[in-house]
Write a protein that binds this DNA or RNA. Structure first.
Lengths: 328, 328
DNA sequence: CTGAAAGCGCTTACAG
DNA sequence: CTGAAAGCGCTTACAG
């Protein structure tokens, strides 16, 4: 492999000078510069970034920790992150926890050992070990999706989004609104969205049967099953179902359609996420757009800013947008 | 930052011994091992992989080059790759070319400078500069999705998949079959799928009007527009439309539905890709499953095998499966 | 404008 | 079973 020493020899200069040319800093005579560049070109020399990184303590790599790699949300976020960091010549090192909390911690340490310059975590839960691992890493760090104490966080406005969409159902004359949520170990999706729903119901003095509130696991199938339970176990049928993710909402629509319910005439369905699918199912799904890609961009911008100059911890709340379509 | 030297001092041994304990090779007395491990634990010491990689010439990182990061195909493939490489403790360094051919080459060189142990390229085209860059990199390399000369390639069986699905339309009594393809700079999707369609038509002596054959760009919108052109410009309406991707097929369905056509009664629609969406649109879309995740797994396995022991160049053809649903 | 030298944090023959 | 020493390929004060 060609190294900086080879280039130096071939150009009859020291490797110091070659380094200066390559990094464009320090004075080098135009003549020498040209000579070196020519040789670099001819040999196809590619500098070793591991050596550089060992020496400079910067790697040009940003670590991204995802709960699941193959979801539309994740790929939108990564796309947003990538767009920003690529411009600054950073690469993304991707890790997938498969929703395993231990892996979150393991990967933070791993990324640290790879000397990444910063980490963006798409968080799904909050726990003390996680927080302390992040503190110990002592690296520019952004949490996206959960409000992590002591860590700069970008969160979606889960509470208000859920409240808004519930309100929208109410203003469409729905008074019996069922709910499909996820487990409370996920504060953002599991707790805040549910609270937004519950508070809105009580504000309007609306009833809610126990059987109207079900807990799924983000999958289409769980939306289907929860809806089955709602329909079968309710003394009174709801006239609307609010699922906290589009996928579960689409599972709900599937079950309702199979059972011969008309959507929205018999039962309306809404979700959250503005997935591509939500637009193309029939009827098209009313949902909330969380601007995931923009959230990824923002996370990357904040991270880069923090890398350049240590920023104080702050919490950012993303905006969202209701998308009214045919399922209501 | 704690280094191996610090640990060595604290344990009163040489860093050689610490290295041996950490990497679990060479003889170390049980007593010393325990002492070292305890100190490692207490200090939270994290070895520097850049230093290790500089020394060993292996990085434990695999580079993946994607044409677009946020597509379902890409995320399935990456998920498959990740599953395999994570087991062997490799990380994925992800790059996104945004369909720019120059970036493919740029990223190969970049990944090389980062000393990745191998590269998987989701190729979208074939050109000489690309091939020669790959040869120069002299790294374990797998092409996925295109048959790159001189490079181990995993390809989908585009020709036969297209032929099969066309045949299926014919055996459902369709004789007027329109086609929505993509540009021919993409040999797999643009050329092979089209050829499979054309050959099947001529084998059955079926007609095909010029206006029945349109070229889109993978997007839902282009499927919509191509279908508009087909419907408006044809002297005879086709009774079926074969779009080479699900997204374009879904665009086609959208236009047809808007215009009041019944699917499949008036016009049948088929796609390729087995996207999640294809299952959940109404009517559900007949399509071809390419097992993208399995392709990703296989790419990773081949790459790892090649890293361990140089393998001869070979071409692998993935299997596929027709999924008949309600759009035919 | 240019170079010699030190050092980043590891691993690995080699010697004992 | 253990350690001293060399070296991986860079960058960066420092000196001239």
């Amino acid at each position: 492999m060609t190294t900086i020493n080879d280039i130096a020899k071939m150009a009859n200069v020291s490797r110091t000078t070659v380094s200066r040319v390559l990094n464009n800093n320090g004075y080098v005579s135009e003549e020498v510069r040209k000579r070196i560049l020519k040789i670099v070109e001819e040999t196809g020399y590619i500098p070793s970034l591991s050596a550089k990184s060992l020496r400079t303590k910067r790697s040009g790599v940003i670590g991204v920790i995802l709960p699941r790699i193959n979801t539309e949300t994740a790929s939108r976020v990564v796309s947003g992150i990538n767009e920003v960091v690529a411009k600054e010549n950073f690469q993304i090192l991707l890790t997938d926890t498969e929703l395993d909390k231990n892996k979150e911690i393991e990967y933070i340490r791993l990324l640290q050992s790879r000397h990444v310059d910063g980490i963006i975590l798409l968080a799904t839960n909050i726990n003390d070990r996680l927080i302390s691992t992040i503190k110990d890493a002592n690296l520019p760090f952004i949490s996206l999706g959960q409000d992590l104490p002591e860590v700069t966080s970008i969160v979606y406005d889960d509470y208000h989004a859920a409240a808004d969409i519930t309100n929208m159902l109410i203003s469409n004359d729905h008074t019996k609104i069922a709910f499909i949520g996820v487990g409370e170990e996920d504060p953002s999706v599991g707790q805040l969205r549910k609270q937004g729903y519950l508070d809105t119901l009580s504000k309007h003095n609306l009833p809610n049967e126990d059987s109207w509130i079900q807990t799924g696991d983000f999958s289409i199938e769980s939306g289907y099953e929860c809806t089955k339970t709602i329909i079968k176990n309710s003394s009174q049928l709801p006239t609307a179902i609010f699922a906290v993710t589009d996928r579960m909402a689409i599972g709900a629509m599937e079950y309702l359609r199979e059972q011969g319910f008309q959507i929205p005439a018999d039962i309306a369905v809404v979700g959250i996420g503005a997935s591509t699918m939500s637009k193309h199912v029939t009827p098209s799904l009313t949902t909330v757009d969380y601007f995931n890609k923009e959230a990824g961009e923002k996370a990357a911008q904040l991270l880069i800013a923090d890398m350049k100059k240590k920023m104080p911890r702050k919490k950012y709340v993303q905006t969202y947008r209701l998308i009214k379509r045919d399922s209501v």
